[in-house]
Simulated assay, not measured.
Amino acid sequence: MAIEERLRSLAQTNSNYSLLLAQWEFDKKLLQRALNAVSTTFPHYSLHDSSHSSTIITQIEKIILPDIDKLSATDC
């Protein structure tokens, strides 16, 4: 994901952003498990697992890609 790569790049150049990157990585793992449980809790919902979230992020990236380098660490 380009947004994640942007955050990783910012964290490498500024150690103050390392905490944001670490929080993102933790949340990503935690939310993947939670999102995968949605279908069992709400079987009448359309697919809302982690692949759905990845698809949303991919679509956002397609829109902002020309300007992705303008995103701050908190924007990412």
Rank of each mutant, 00 (worst) to 15 (best):
Y17R: 08
K28L: 14
I3K: 00
R33L: 15
K62A: 13
L31V: 10
T13R: 00
I63F: 04
K28T: 12
T58F: 00
N14E: 07
L35C: 06
T58V: 13
C76P: 10
I56M: 07
S54K: 11
D27P: 05
D75H: 00
L20C: 08
P66S: 09
L65A: 10
T41I: 13
K70M: 12
N36S: 15
S50A: 15
S15R: 11
M1R: 06
Q23W: 04
S46P: 04
S39T: 10
L19V: 01
A73C: 08
L47G: 05
D69F: 08
I64W: 01
A34T: 14
I56Q: 12
K62D: 03
Q23N: 11
S15G: 07
H52S: 14
T13Y: 04
A22I: 05
R6Q: 06
I57E: 13
H52L: 10
F42P: 09
E61P: 09
V38I: 14
S18M: 05
P66T: 07
I68M: 05
W24A: 03
Q23L: 14
L7Q: 00
W24S: 00
L19W: 07
R6V: 02
C76R: 00
A34L: 09
I3S: 06
A22N: 14
F26A: 14
I57P: 11
L21R: 00
I56P: 02
E61S: 10
L20P: 02
S54R: 11
P66I: 01
L19S: 00
H52P: 11
L71H: 02
Y45S: 08
L47P: 03
L30I: 09
L71S: 01
L21P: 02
Q12G: 05
A11S: 15
E5I: 14
K28I: 07
E25F: 02
A37M: 13
W24Q: 00
V38T: 05
I64R: 01
